[in-house]
Amino acid sequence: MAIDIGASFQTRKPRSLWRVAWKRLSKNKLALLGLGIVIFFVLVAIFAPYITPYPWNEVDLSRALQPPSWKHLLGTDEFGRDIFSRIIYGTRVSLQFAFFAQLISISIGTLLGLIAGFYGGWIDDLIMRVVEILFAFPFLLFVIAVVSTLGTGIQNLYLAVALIGWAGVSRIVRGQVLSLRERDFVVGAHAIGASIWRILFRHILPNALSPIIIEATLGVGGMIMLEAGLSFLGLGVQAPTPSWGSMVQAGLAYMRSCWWYPIAPGIVIMIVVFGFNLLGDGLRDALDPRLYI
C-alpha cells in the first residue's frame, strides 16, 4: 500500500504559537480556574450598577453595623451602607486602577526596553542604570514616597506607578531584543531598508510578546495589592469611593464586634489576585518556548 506522505504534510493545519499555547492552557485546570475568576470579576466590574442590591453610597445610620442577613449579605458598615454592594463597586475601582496602571507600566517598559536593547551603547547603559536605581526601592515604599510628597489621589498614584512600574518590564523586553536583533529576519528587514521603528514594532515586538503577556498578567495582581495596600494606609482611593483596602482599614475599628467587616473585602482581594496569579502561571507554562521544540 502506497502512502502519500506529501499529501499528509500539506493537509496538516499550521500550528501557530498562540494556537498551541491556547491548547496547552485549556488543558491546565488551575489556569482555567484562574481565567474563570478573572472573567467573573471583570464582568462584576462592568455590570456593577446592575447587580448591587443597594447604591454603594446610600447612608442610613439607623441600620449601622448590622450582621450578615438575607437583606444585607455581608452586613452593613458604620454608616449603614451595604458592605456587599460596596465590595461589588470596589471591584470596579480596583480592577480599573490595576488595568490602567499595568497598561502604563507595560507601555513605558516595552518602549524603553526595545530602545535599550536595539540601540545598545550609552542609551542602553543609561536606561539600565536607572532601572538598577529603581530596583533599589521597594515598590510600595517608592509609591508611598511619591504619593505622600505630591499628595494623595488616583492621578498621583498613576504618576508614581509610571515612574517606577516600568523597570521590570523594560529589563525583560531588553533581554528579548538582545536575543532577537541578530536573527536573520531582523538582519533581512534591515537589508531591505525597513525603518528602525518598523523593525522594532513589526518584527521584534511580536516575537517578544510572550514574556510581556506573562509579566502583564502577573503584574495586575501586584497592582491590585498595591492599590489596596495604599488605600489601607489612607494614601490611595479616598472616601467615600469604595476601595477594598480602605474597607479593610475602616472595618479594623469594629473587628471585635463585626469581624466580617474587615474580613470580607480581604477575601475578595485574595481571590482576585489568586485568579491573576493562576492565570499568569498557566500562561508562563503555555507560552514557554522551550516546550515547542
Binding site: 495582581g221 495589592m225 489596596a228 495596600g229 489601607f232 483596602g245 479593610v248 479594623l252 473587628m255 474587615p262 474580613i263 480581604g266 482581594i269 485574595m270 481571590i271 489576585v273 489568586f274 496569579n277
Partner: peptide, 12 residues
Amino acid sequence: LGVSAPVYWIGI
C-alpha cells in the same frame, strides 16, 4: 493563596 493574600489582612 499566601502570595495572593494582603499581609495586613492576614494580620487581622
